[in-house]
Design a protein around this nucleic acid. Structure first.
Lengths: 155, 155
DNA sequence: GGTGAAATTTCCACTTT
DNA sequence: AAAGTGGAAATTTCACC
């Protein structure tokens, strides 16, 4: 499952992370190689799953998604069945952009983006009616200070 | 600053979010249009900033970034000067992928990805030596249950 | 890893509704 | 105004060095 990556691979990934719309030639030039090896490496990196997908980063506010919440969840249920249902609920809800199981007091954190506070409440009500949770705390984002930071692959 | 988007724009954005590497023709076909209008719309959406950039989503673990933390920060300082220094510190630290200013008890949340716990501690020490913070809680992710969820633009 | 060329795609001028 | 057509230019993809 582990992939060995050399400096060239890292440079390629770093460039793609910054801007995946540039041409192969262009990328090859900036990293000091020629297009075919770059193309072959990108192909391998895709196949190996190092590059999971190519996407566009959208401006949520411009699209009417004005509210971003981080939701901290504690539960008393830890059986496999409960976990499965919880996972399915998260996967099925498009307002959940990201979800992690945590170590420590808090069991889960979700990142939820919705048009407004009312939509969040709707989401919240739907979620707690689907799966039993012990405690939910919602942190409302007032301002996105940094976003879309990529992994730092420079060295 | 608000952009008016019709159904076709939303379909295009939805497709690009799912996979931005597909060809124009391909995308045009799936949404039932022809390539030129799609091209013109994408161009406009880019210029308007609705599409912020095209990127690749990488597998952090495959690249040796094994630890993901959500960092909750409380501070007693709220002057503009402090905020500026804090913001600069965040921007300069590549391990911070995302940062939000929050409403309520907790003032900030950061998403931090590092190779391991030791690297997190290094980051933490560096941060608190740069800016004064009142309280820091780190939530360690054990498992990413969902990631890369896009905005839901279907309707 | 590089070269070059076929196949595909992007991009734009022009036509149509 | 907004969508389609066609084609030149650029880019991707691949066989071969």
């Amino acid at each position: 499952m582990t992939v060995r990556l050399d400096t060239v691979d890292r440079k390629i990934l770093s460039e793609l992370q910054k801007d995946a719309s540039r041409s192969l030639d262009d990328i090859a030039k900036t990293i000091g190689a020629s297009k075919t090896p770059v193309w072959n490496r990108i192909k391998k990196l895709r196949e190996a799953g190092v590059i999971k997908r190519t996407t566009v980063e959208l401006d949520a506010e411009a699209l009417g998604f004005e509210a971003c919440f981080f939701v901290l969840i504690r539960t008393s249920e830890h059986e496999a069945d409960w976990q499965d249902r919880f996972l399915t609920a998260l996967q099925n809800r498009p307002e959940v952009l990201e979800a992690h199981r945590l170590a420590g007091e808090i069991d889960y954190i979700l990142k939820v983006i919705v048009p407004n506070a009312r939509a969040y409440d709707k989401f919240y009500q739907a979620l707690i009616s689907e799966v039993r949770v012990f405690n939910v705390t919602a942190l409302l984002s007032m301002e996105e200070l940094k976003s879309g930071g990529g992994l730092s692959l420079d060295p």
